[in-house]
Amino acid sequence: MIPKLLPFLCFNSLAGLCVGQGDIRGNGSLPKPSLGAWPSSVAPAGGNVTLRCWTPARGVHFALRKGGAALELPQSPGSPEGPGEFHLADLQIRNAGEYTCEYYRQASPDTRSQPSDVLLLLVTGHLPKPSLSIYRQGKVTAGEKVTLQCQMPGHFVVPMMFALLKAGTSSPLQLRAPTGKETDFSLGSVTAGDTGKYSCVYYQTRAPFWASDPSDQLQISVMVSPGTMSSDYTTGNLLRLGLAALTVVIMAAFLFEAWYSQKASTSGSSLSGPHWKPGAGALEQHGCWDPDYSEQCGRDTARSGAKAPPCLPGN
């Protein structure tokens, strides 16, 4: 039973994480990888960023592209089971842009995967910083809606976009087009997980992708009312609690079955043995156990003048 469930769990729960080396789509192409930036895809000039290209396939080689052009960047040596990592040090404005990655097998370098989704790397510090404000000051109660406004210091002719950042996250939370000099970001039905430091930047949507310095950080604290379920109780946590409860029920059922079987076995052995013929005192208390002994019991009680006890049917 368990071996039959493994493929189902692998497909549904892990979303393809169990794919092996033979994972090739019906049209012969390899599935596209994912590309991420650490510590963040919005980094200051002079900083360092690591681009990580990941795929469930094993034993492959990775290639990085910027604006469609292949980059001659050495891939960090590591485990063949891990992602491909490309390090960008001392970032400059020339490093800003749109990146993708792909992978191939050494035995067939001409057969490459589909490119990953585009990752926009922004190098900040080339435009004046904006300001970030919140419509409601102070602490926020869980479940409320929070609106943040990011405003640039002047007007720009070239197309611009705003990005909302949160300390500790590797990519912008939201992207918004401006309305005049500003834009609003909304955090709906906030939870304790939304507590943190926020900032915003604005940037050009075309090359050379100039980006502003980040705004001053804005601290948001979300209070969870007593008796309110915390955001930590996610769907995954509830599923784990359900599985734990199911395990307890199954164990209780096994224990009850073992207890009942033992009791039935003990009762069966006492009833299936030879008939026990009690003495006179026991007969007066419990009656007779079989027809032959019942008759003798009746005669004995008649001679003694005592009231005959009820006789039980024999086995």
Score class of each variant (00 low, 15 high):
G281D: 13
P274N: 10
P274C: 05
L243M: 13
D232R: 09
A177C: 04
T247L: 14
R52N: 03
I2C: 07
P214S: 09
L9C: 11
M251C: 11
N95C: 00
A63Q: 15
Y203L: 00
A258K: 14
D290K: 00
G287E: 01
S170P: 00
Q137I: 09
P178L: 04
I2D: 09
L127S: 07
D184T: 07
L148Q: 03
L51T: 04
V118K: 14
T179G: 11
L312G: 09
M251P: 00
Y103P: 05
W54Y: 09
A96C: 06
F209A: 02
K307V: 15
E85Q: 13
E102C: 04
S40N: 10
E295N: 09
H155I: 06
K181G: 03
P77M: 08
G180D: 03
P80E: 13
A258Y: 02
W54N: 13
T141Y: 00
L239C: 05
K166S: 01
P313R: 06
S269E: 12
Q75H: 00
Q174R: 06
G28T: 02
V19A: 08
F156R: 15
L246A: 15
P80V: 11
G20P: 05
L175T: 02
T183W: 00
K139C: 03
S186D: 10
D300G: 15
A302D: 15
S199I: 02
F8L: 14
E284N: 12
L173A: 00
L73H: 04
H275K: 11
F86W: 11
G78T: 06
G82N: 10
S76A: 14
I2V: 09
F256G: 06
N237T: 12
V190S: 04
Y103R: 05
R105Q: 14
M161D: 03
Q137K: 13
G188D: 15
L9P: 05
Y99D: 08
T124S: 15
L246N: 08
Q106F: 08
Q217F: 08
A45E: 14
V146T: 06
G22V: 02
R105G: 12
F62L: 12
N315C: 06
E257M: 13
M161K: 10
G314K: 10
P310C: 01
P31E: 07
P31L: 11
L148D: 06
Q219R: 11
S265A: 15
W38T: 09
G281T: 07
G273E: 06
R240Q: 11
P153A: 03
P130I: 03
M251R: 05
V140F: 02
S189R: 15
G68D: 02
T228G: 01
G16I: 05
R206L: 11
G279P: 04
H87T: 13
T191L: 04
V60P: 00
S186K: 01
H286K: 12
L88I: 13
C101E: 07
G22E: 13
S265D: 11
P109K: 11
P274F: 05
